[in-house]
Each structure stands twice: as structure tokens, then as C-alpha cells.
């Protein structure tokens, strides 16, 4: 026993080192696999406060670009408005006939922290629970898909960026509606990979890739990017498609959080079916 204590004392630094490394790796692994560490991320009040102050300064440098982006979005929204004669000719919307976009609520938010150079990239936005944001909601911008809300605090939320190897999104080819799954290969912040597109689908460089609308997170036909190149995986009969993102993650300032209004109803229904 005495020898054991002497041994511990002699190597106390090494044991302290092992102990602290164990804590570090425990945090690392736990944080990556479970979603419980809400209080230890940048939606925490202190870190988010500092980042918010920093962003109030840095926002001035990107005013020009932000204006361009907002005006582009205005133009897009105006193009979505039905023209007056359209209203007269068609019958008014009856119950259950509302266009698909009416099922979604869009809430604007500003990005206050962002990264593109890690394997697991996250964004922090300045809207949280008190603005109605919940984990699992989708995040888009005027130029395309951004990510999915992961944690929320009272006034802030963190978002798993599309540039995160842990995120998989259901996407389809706009021309033919063939759908597959989209994930990031941690190489370039401008590209993602689209897998599981069957070999008989016509694929061409330059075709648009959009969200499929099969998950209850994103509306259908949100632009993700365009096909840059592709190759056929001979053994499995699937294409591996390299998609150039339409959105530049390096200068992202204004985003919108998407809420599907019937999300809970749909989830409950699907759960019922799975249980059968």
C-alpha cells in the first residue's frame, strides 16, 4: 500500500495529465454523439453575448452585400406573388387547397458566428426559444439551404451547418425528381456529395439539386446547388454526384428559420404507422 502511494506521488503529474485528458475526450465524444450538452456550446449566454457584440461591429463591413442579398430576396418574393388577373380566373383557395408554401413559417435571423474549416461546422444565430425557434427546424437563406437547428437557448440557437459531416439531407434532381441523400465529405466548403441517385436517372453537369420535401424540415424545391461532376459507382448502380453549393458559407449574414406548421401532426402520424 505504501509503495502504491509512493508510486502515485512520484507520477502524480502523469496521472493528473491522464485524468484531464480523460475529461477532455469524454467531453469530446459525448458532445459529438449526444445532444444534451446544450449549456456548453456557444448558445450559452456568456459566449453568445460576446459574439453578438463582435457581430454588431463586423456587420457594418458587410452592409453592401447584405443589401444586395435582401434586394435579391425581395425580387424573388415579388415573383412569387400571384398577379391580379390570376386571382379572378382561378377559384379561391378552399380548405386543404392552400399552396405548399403556406404550410411553412419563415422567421428571419442573423448569423453571429460561423465556421467552414472543421469537420463539424456550426453556426450561431441571434434567435432562440423566445422567438419560437426549436431544435430540428430547417435554416435557409436567399441563396439556398444552410442547415438544421441543433440547440436553442432563450435568445440564441446553434445550427448544424450543411458543412458538417454529421448532417444528412434528402435532396433530389430538379429536372427528374430522382432523390438521394446529401452529405459533406469535409474537403471543400463549396462542394457536397449527393449519393444514391440511381444509374438510370439522366444526370448532366449544371443540373440543379434541390430539397426533396420528404422530410418535414425543409419545403420542397429549396435550391442547394448545381452538379459539377459525377461518376457512376459500377458495383452498386448509383451515381456519386459532386454538387457545387449555390450558397457561399464564407459570407453568410442573413438566414431564415423554417417551421413546418403541421410538423407535429405529420410526425405523430408517421410514428403511428411505424408502430404497426
Amino acid at each position: 500500500m505504501r509503495n502504491f502511494i509512493r508510486f502515485l506521488l512520484r507520477y502524480h503529474l502523469f496521472f493528473l495529465f491522464l485524468f484531464l485528458e480523460t475529461i477532455s475526450f469524454y467531453l469530446l465524444v459525448n458532445y459529438n454523439h449526444h445532444h444534451r450538452q446544450t449549456f456548453l456550446n456557444s448558445s450559452g449566454r456568456f459566449a453568445a453575448g460576446v459574439l453578438q457584440i463582435s457581430s454588431t461591429f463586423s456587420d457594418y463591413f458587410s452592409l453592401k452585400r447584405a443589401n444586395e442579398e435582401l434586394s435579391r430576396e425581395n425580387a424573388f418574393l415579388r415573383s412569387q406573388l400571384p398577379s391580379p388577373e390570376h386571382f379572378e380566373a382561378d377559384q379561391p383557395f378552399g380548405p386543404g387547397q392552400a399552396p405548399a408554401t403556406l404550410n411553412y413559417l419563415f422567421r428571419p435571423a442573423r448569423v453571429i458566428n460561423n465556421s467552414v474549416n472543421k469537420h463539424h461546422n456550426y453556426l450561431t444565430i441571434n434567435r432562440g426559444e423566445s422567438h419560437g425557434i426549436e431544435a430540428g427546424m430547417g435554416v435557409i437563406s436567399a441563396r439556398g439551404l444552410v442547415g438544421v437547428v441543433r440547440h436553442t437557448s432563450k435568445g440564441y440557437a446553434t445550427v448544424i451547418s450543411l458543412l458538417n459531416t454529421q448532417l444528412k439531407i434528402s435532396a433530389k434532381l430538379r429536372e427528374t425528381d430522382h432523390f438521394g441523400s446529401l452529405e459533406w465529405d469535409a474537403r471543400s466548403y463549396q462542394h457536397v456529395l449527393l449519393n444514391e441517385i440511381p444509374a438510370h436517372a439522366p444526370v448532366a453537369v449544371g443540373d440543379a439539386v434541390v430539397t426533396s420535401g420528404y422530410s418535414s424540415i425543409f419545403p420542397e424545391n429549396i435550391l442547394i446547388g448545381t452538379i459539377e461532376d459525377f461518376e457512376l459507382n459500377q458495383g452498386e448502380g448509383f451515381y456519386v454526384i459532386r454538387v457545387k453549393l449555390s450558397i457561399d458559407f464564407k459570407n453568410l449574414t442573413h438566414v431564415e428559420v423554417v417551421e413546418k406548421i403541421d410538423r407535429e401532426e405529420i410526425n405523430e402520424l408517421e410514428k403511428l404507422t411505424e408502430n404497426d
Partner: peptide, 14 residues
């Protein structure tokens, strides 16, 4: 805490 990478930099600095 600032980088959203709990544990990564901690392990390296230790």
C-alpha cells in the same frame, strides 16, 4: 466554448 468544439482544444492544451 467559443468555437463549439467542446473537448478538442482542451485535450490539446493539456
Amino acid at each position: 466554448l467559443f468555437l463549439n468544439t467542446i473537448g478538442m482544444h482542451t485535450a490539446a492544451t493539456v
